[in-house]
Amino acid sequence: MRLHEYQAKQVFADAGVPTPASQLAETVDEAVDAAEDIGYPVAIKAQVHVGGRGKAGGIKLVESKEEAREAADAILGMDLKGYHVSKVLVEEAVDFVNELYVGVTMDRGEGKPVAMVSTKGGVNIEEVAEEDPDAIAREHIDPAFGMHPYQARKVVYEAGVDRDVANDVASVLTTLYQLWDDRDGSDVEVNPLMITSDDEVIAADAVMNIDDDALFRQPELAEMSEEAAEGDELEQKADEYGFDYVRLSGNVGIIGNGAGLVMTTLDLVDYYGGEPANFLDVGGGAKADRIANALDMVFSDDNVDSVVFNIFGGITRGDEVAQGINQALEQFDEIPKPVTVRLAGTNAEEGMEILNEDLVTVEYTLEDAVQRAVEYAKEVQA
């Protein structure tokens, strides 16, 4: 479960992490009133689960009532990378002299949580990791003992953080690790952690993702779950259908059964010149109604121009999948997006015979199916 920025900041502030004064607003008038209460300048920030909000027009710095009204009117209701903006966070602007990145996540290769610090804050940390990996200092934590104070100081100093604020940054990092551990986090980060001219350390952003399977022991965060997905039709559908669904930036929709199979399909879409629109794993043993629900989800994504179905039958039977695909597509007078299907494994041949080829394109290899789906997506864009 992904918390919105305003929710994560509430959790961070309750734990002692310094955050700017802020108020949530759902209307233009509420946003203007909040800006007046906080005092200018303020930042008006779209509350949606996407990165790069600033570049996409979802964050605006304003210095007057007129500018606040204009910015709130522009952001509320906008479509931001496929997400409808229904809330904004009106936040005190921070006069900073430096921006850092601090975060805690799981390093699955090492089988341990890892704390990370970089002096290249305020930009996409994935880009930093790819272009300048040495700019990120890392420290693995033994979960049996937690983060020792010396480890927090060590990774902060290794990152090159100024000594005048190093202890405060280490304190924030220690708190983030404690939140990650106590709240069953998968990712907890601040980007940017701003440093002011007075050497104050302030969390200007907040990211907190929670392990869905642990929500039963996090009742406070579970209450935020419905609100976190509010305004995002796809996340609501994913919760309703019980899918693992991740929205990406491309236009080739992907459905598969098994995380490894879906990841392979993602890689092949990229290899053949396409851009994946999503990660959707329907799981093993998927019945016809679950397959129909998966298609409903992908068809609901406005970014998707073409769909590729990659099913390998182990527990899942090819004939069940084929029935689900037919069942879903026969509801439409006109198929909203071209669908390419590849079936293999248990009852795959029977499934191929069942598939209605007036509704789908059938390919017998994964490579051919992906190439066909990429071609369809490019034709829509042409």
Rank of each mutant, 00 (worst) to 15 (best):
residue 67 E to Q: 00
residue 9 K to N: 02
residue 64 S to P: 13
residue 177 Y to V: 04
residue 204 A to K: 01
residue 75 I to G: 04
residue 170 A to H: 14
residue 209 N to Q: 08
residue 326 N to A: 11
residue 117 V to C: 03
residue 246 V to E: 07
residue 157 Y to E: 15
residue 69 R to D: 00
residue 4 H to Y: 12
residue 212 D to I: 02
residue 197 S to A: 11
residue 265 T to C: 05
residue 238 A to R: 11
residue 26 E to Y: 13
residue 254 I to G: 09
residue 182 D to L: 00
residue 120 K to L: 15
residue 159 A to C: 11
residue 143 P to K: 06
residue 338 P to M: 11
residue 11 V to G: 01
residue 126 E to W: 08
residue 68 A to S: 00
residue 59 I to S: 10
residue 169 V to Q: 02
residue 229 A to P: 08
residue 6 Y to Q: 05
residue 80 L to C: 09
residue 72 A to W: 00
residue 313 G to L: 04
residue 364 Y to P: 09
residue 232 D to L: 02
residue 134 D to Y: 14
residue 285 G to D: 15
residue 188 V to N: 02
residue 178 Q to R: 15
residue 3 L to W: 09
residue 173 L to Q: 01
residue 311 I to L: 05
residue 66 E to N: 02
residue 241 Y to H: 15
residue 282 V to S: 10
residue 244 D to Q: 10
residue 279 F to L: 05
residue 53 R to G: 07
residue 300 S to N: 08
residue 206 A to E: 04
residue 66 E to R: 01
residue 23 Q to C: 10
residue 201 V to L: 03
residue 6 Y to G: 07
residue 243 F to A: 06
residue 353 E to P: 10
residue 356 N to R: 08
residue 358 D to F: 14
residue 79 D to L: 00
residue 134 D to P: 04
residue 85 V to Q: 03
residue 293 N to V: 11
residue 177 Y to S: 01
residue 154 K to S: 09
residue 103 G to F: 00
residue 105 T to F: 02
residue 61 L to E: 09
residue 362 V to L: 15
residue 308 V to L: 10
residue 315 I to P: 11
residue 289 D to T: 15
residue 159 A to W: 13
residue 20 P to T: 14
residue 187 D to P: 07
residue 47 Q to C: 03
residue 167 N to H: 14
residue 147 M to S: 00
residue 299 F to I: 03
residue 341 V to M: 14
residue 30 E to L: 06
residue 186 S to H: 03
residue 334 E to I: 04
residue 159 A to M: 10
residue 26 E to L: 02
residue 361 T to G: 11
residue 352 M to D: 15
residue 338 P to Q: 10
residue 30 E to Q: 14
residue 190 V to H: 13
residue 172 V to R: 03
residue 43 A to P: 05
residue 174 T to L: 02
residue 99 E to P: 07
residue 97 V to I: 06
residue 199 D to E: 13
residue 70 E to N: 03
residue 369 A to V: 07
residue 154 K to A: 03
residue 51 G to P: 10
residue 373 A to N: 12
residue 18 P to S: 00
residue 277 A to F: 13
residue 337 K to R: 15
residue 23 Q to D: 14
residue 373 A to S: 15
residue 33 D to V: 12
residue 380 V to R: 14
residue 60 K to L: 06
residue 287 K to D: 15
residue 24 L to V: 13
residue 208 M to T: 01
residue 249 S to W: 12
residue 185 G to Y: 01
residue 84 H to S: 08
residue 233 E to A: 09
residue 232 D to H: 04
residue 258 G to C: 05
residue 363 E to Y: 10
residue 283 G to M: 06
residue 74 A to K: 12
residue 44 I to Y: 00
residue 342 R to D: 11
residue 123 V to A: 05
residue 186 S to K: 03
residue 294 A to W: 14
residue 215 L to C: 02
residue 51 G to N: 10
residue 53 R to T: 10
residue 236 Q to W: 05
residue 90 V to F: 07
residue 346 T to W: 12
residue 207 V to E: 05
residue 335 I to R: 07
residue 131 E to T: 14
residue 200 E to T: 00
residue 23 Q to W: 13
residue 309 F to E: 12
